[in-house]
Nucleic acid binder design. Sequence first.
DNA 1: AATAACTGAGTTGTGCACAACTTAATTTCT
DNA 2: AGAAATTAAGTTGTGCACAACTCAGTTATT
Lengths: 152, 152
Amino acid sequence: MAEQPAGPVLDDQVCFALYAASRAVTALYRPLLDDLGLTYPQYLVLLALWEHDALTVKDLGRALQLDSGTLSPLLKRLEKLELVRRERRSDDERSVLVTLTAKGDELRAKAVPLPGLVGDAMGLDGPDLYELRTTLRELTDSVNAYRAALPQ
Amino acid sequence: MAEQPAGPVLDDQVCFALYAASRAVTALYRPLLDDLGLTYPQYLVLLALWEHDALTVKDLGRALQLDSGTLSPLLKRLEKLELVRRERRSDDERSVLVTLTAKGDELRAKAVPLPGLVGDAMGLDGPDLYELRTTLRELTDSVNAYRAALPQ
DNA sequence: AATAACTGAGTTGTGCACAACTTAATTTCT
DNA sequence: AGAAATTAAGTTGTGCACAACTCAGTTATT
C-alpha cells in the first residue's frame, strides 16, 4: 500500500502548477523587459494600448482583470516614464482616458520579438500552445463565473 | 483582409492566460483560506510541511520556487500565528529548520476539502485537470531550464 | 429640484515576489 | 592551519495585487 497523506499534497495541486508556471514565465520575460525599462504588468498595459490606442482605467481593468488599486499607481509610473498620458474625459469627468505617447508607441516595435522568444522557451509546439491557452481561458472563465455566483 | 496589429496582442499571449488563470484561482482560494487565517503562499508552505513535517528554509524554497527574501518574512508571520516553529539546526547553524506546531498540524484537517471545492469550480474533469497539470509542469521545467542556460 | 444610489479613480495598508545586499557559518584550497 | 570561496538566512527597497475606504461626478427616484 502506498502512503496516504492525511491532507492535500503540494505537487498534486493544479493551483500550484499554475502559480509556478506563471512566475516562471514572468521571470523569463523580466530580463527582456528590463531592456525596455518595463515590468511585466506594465508590459501588459502597453499590450492593451498598442491594440486599442486609448482606454479608460476601467477598460484596462476589464482587459487585465485588475482593479484601480493596482492600476492607478502603475499608470502613474508609466506616465512618469512618458509612455502614456492620462486625462479626464470631458464627457464624463469620473473617467480617466489613458493614451500612448509617441515614446510609448515607439516601444511597440521593440516588443515584437518578445512573444516569439518566450514561446520558444516554453518547449511546446504551436498546437499545444494553442490548446493550453484555450484550456486556461476556459478555466479562468469557469472560476470567475463560480466566484461571481458566490454569496456577497 | 483582417487587420494586422503591428505588435503583440494581449489575448494571444499564453503568458497572459497563465497570469489571469493563476490570479483567478488564487482569488477563489482567498475566502476559503480567510476562514483558516491564511494567505495563499502561507497555505503552500503549510502544504509542504503537512507532507514533510520538517523542512529547512532552503528546502521550502526549492519546493515552492521562492527565495529567502520572500520566505523569511512569510515564515515569521506563520511563527507569530503559532503555526510553525523556526530553529537553527545544531549540525549546521546556517540552516533554519521549520516545523509544524500542534496548531499548524491541526489546520491540515480543515484544509482537506479545499482542493475538491476549487477543482469543481475549474470546470474541468479529472483527465483534463491531470493533463493540464502535466502540461504546466513541462512548461515550467522547460522555461526554468531555458532561464538557467541564459548568460549570467 | 432635491435626495439617494451608483460609478470610476484614487488612497491606504498588508502581504507577497524579487533584486541586491549583508552577515555568519561551513567548506575548499592551498 | 589559515585564506578564499561557498552557502543559508535575513534585510532593504521597489512594484505589484487586493481589500477597504474616500471622494467627486453621474444617474435614478421621488
